[in-house]
Every structure is written in structure tokens, then in C-alpha cells.
Amino acid sequence: MDFTNTQIHHDTLPDIDDVVLKPISSQYIKVIIINKLLLYTVCFGFLILGKFMITKAGFQNNFWLIISIVFIFCVINFVLALLAFRKRKYAIREHDVIYAHGLIVNTITTVPISRIQHIEESRSWLSRQFHLATLNIYTAGESGSDLSIKGLPQHEARQVNDFISAKVNENN
């Protein structure tokens, strides 16, 4: 095997900054909104149930305070989720998969394709209504190094899945 290992200047390496990250499907924001609203409904449901069930004075007197705190929390959470949506981006390069997400804590994870153990495409009931799919990419690492790209258009997820599967098999 002819193997060379010449020093490469750091400027000539392929740069993460040069990659054009592609946003996930704009349909997915609907899934996020529906999920969030469901969660908030459950929260408020429990609170209102508490209003009728719990007779403690401490709870009853501060009921509106609690409700407003929860409400403000929900609004902030909702706004952040909407703003963070635009940060969810991904890219497939020749040798690796990149996924970026997060508004307050922005994370860019890169998994080399040669390290992928297996890949799966999953679709929840809600995502199916919008023709979306989630791509789960598993490595041998700790759970922290696994990737889950949510809200891809279904045909795109299929394409990526096929491409990576072929690559992984080729490596083996």
C-alpha cells in the first residue's frame, strides 16, 4: 500500500465554514408548534385540575401568580423554539454528516461516515401527516455522539439514507 503522510497546511484542509448547511423542511415548524401546544395544554390542564382538587390555602391564594409564571415560561419557551427552528440545519459531505442546531447553545456535530454503525429512518404519526421523516444515525460512541436529524422531507430522508447506507456498506 502506498501511503503518504505529508504535512498539510491547516488552511488547505476542508473547512466546516465552507459547507452550505441546508435548513430542514419548513413544514417541521408545524410539528414543533403542535407538540408544544399539546405540552402546554397538559400543563395548564393539570393546574386547572389543581384549582379544583387542592384545597390548601397556599395554593389557592397564589393560583393566579402560579398560572402567570407558567404562562410566561411557556411564552418564552415557545418563542425560543420558533427562533431556534432556523438554526436546525444539516449537510452531507463526501465523508461526513453535519448537523447544527440550538439557538442559545449552538452545537455543530460532525460524524464521519466511516464511523457510522447503522442508520434508520423513523416517522411518527404527526410527521407522516406532513410527509416528514427523522433520520437517526448511530455510531459506536456514547449516546452523545449519535445524531438525530428531525424534520427532513420524506423523499430527502430516503435519499440520504440510501446514500449513507451504500457508503457504510462500501467501507465494510
Binding site: I104, V105, T109, R115, A140, G141
Partner: peptide
Amino acid sequence: KIQAVKLRQTIFQK
């Protein structure tokens, strides 16, 4: 032996 590389930055760090 690396399986994945992650870059992390909060908006305060940005």
C-alpha cells in the same frame, strides 16, 4: 479512534 466531533457555542460566547 474518534467517533464524532462537536463544536458548541452559546450566544454569550458568540
